[in-house]
Nucleic acid binder design. Structure first.
Lengths: 247, 247
DNA sequence: TCACCCACTTGATCTCGGTCAAGGTATCTG
DNA sequence: CAGATACCTTGACCGAGATCAAGTGGGTGA
């Protein structure tokens, strides 16, 4: 999903974008400049961070918590079009207004930069622009993989795909040994999963139960997931078995 | 979908990317350099232009014809994840291999640039990098709009959405008067439409017939479409009535 | 002119996931 | 502790779209 900074690198700063955009080619002036235009904001679970169509006066990245980009039709049908995990970037340099609602799915801390100065810095600093292009291309890849999920996969495959995406992101942070079970807490409600996958929450619930019954996943409570065999999960997702690990 | 250069500007050159990437801030040296690394390739309808996973040694843009980015699962289910119309850009600066199959839906002429020199030029030329970032953001927006279509719209709404996207692109090239009927030839087979929308070709056919019966569209033969009332079509698509024209 | 092909249409039937409805469980509050 | 609330599960039923199966029509080549 979108973008990710290995957390062990965040000692570079408590703000991921500094590492991603700047530290790779560290430059004291740029760091100082970023520091000046930087500020933090916190949001509670369920709060709307940005309304679609609003003027956007900042860009930034998620420090902790989960946010989502969602689109809503007049009759209330909603589709999540982006999932923002810690270290993901928010905002569109060069665009004045937001294209989607950004919702805090859990409590969220964001590190923000005032947009105008950030853009000016970007214009003067080729490697920041380059970094941003790479990040955007990553997001585009993620969106397109997601389109295959939405358009062609069954409900069971959709759930397996989502679990494997989350598991992969979690696992790659801690370790990439493939054989051992992967354990994590689901950061999404059943409803958020449904909005992600184009399903209803009832179907999500049923398929979670089915995957549990079949031993593909283990569930403790409603959110704590153990994946005993990642290969098995990826078969269920309809991906080739180890594609995700080779990316 | 994706990107578009008004065709009346193409007198700047027969190759769209020169206009998009360069001419806005014309510079003789850059133009000469692009000219050197440029070449044309033609493909027949049905041919695969690029295989997913292949080494990509060029970037470029579509001069004429329609190409599509598609993903295929092992069992043959396929989903189109990008539709490339004339003037759209192909390729991922900074990536070595292709992420999707690129198929020629009709006969296609591409204008290509050898990738290595193009990237070098890009590194030296901020406004090309900037242009590319804007194009990629546009594609990301298109992909996310498409995700709403795939995840939450009914078959009828999906067809109406596709027709309105194609009509809008066609219409904006010639004129943007809203009241008059819009006429165009569908560049896609029913099967390609199905792959675009996550449907079967039978469902596409049925919904086309239904829209015709209800007077939302007029059909002469199988491909020639007239849209008497664009607002009506957009209502059927579930979009707000004039959103598309305000973009 | 006929045979063939390809893209498309239409019909009959089936099925997956949506809808509606009832319960369950954990946490918080008065 | 009772009641409220938010989140989740499960069951019964239904319908939109998939699947399977003919059939149509226009274009091409022998």
């Amino acid at each position: 999903m979108t973008l990710q900074i290995p957390l062990e690198h965040s000692n570079c700063s408590d703000c991921p974008i500094r590492h991603r955009a700047v530290c790779a080619h560290c430059d004291g002036d740029e760091l100082a400049e970023l520091e000046e235009i930087k500020y933090y904001r916190t949001f509670e679970a369920g709060q709307t961070i940005i309304w679609s169509g609003d003027q956007m006066n900042f860009v930034g990245s998620v420090v902790s918590g989960i946010a989502s980009l969602t689109q809503t039709m007049e009759d209330g049908r909603t589709q999540m079009v982006g999932l923002l995990l810690p270290s993901d970037f928010v905002g569109r340099p060069g665009r004045e207004s937001a294209a989607y609602d950004v919702l805090a799915t859990t409590d969220v801390v964001m590190c923000c930069f005032r947009k105008k100065p950030f853009e000016e810095l970007m214009a003067r600093t080729p490697h920041i622009a380059h970094r941003l292009l790479q990040m955007t291309l990553d997001e585009l890849d993620a969106a397109r993989e997601w389109m295959l999920v939405l358009g062609r996969k069954t409900a069971r495959e959709k759930i397996a795909s989502l679990l494997s995406i989350i598991a992969r992101r979690d696992a790659s942070i801690s370790k990439d040994r493939r054989a051992e079970p992967i354990v994590f807490d689901l950061p999404l409600t059943r409803e958020a999963m449904a909005d992600y996958l184009g399903l209803t929450l009832e179907t999500v619930s049923r398929q979670m139960s089915a995957l549990k019954k079949d031993g593909v996943i283990l569930l403790e409570g409603k959110r704590h997931v153990t994946i005993p065999d990642m290969g098995r999960l990826m078969e269920e997702a309809g991906d080739d078995t180890d594609g995700g690990f080779l990316v």
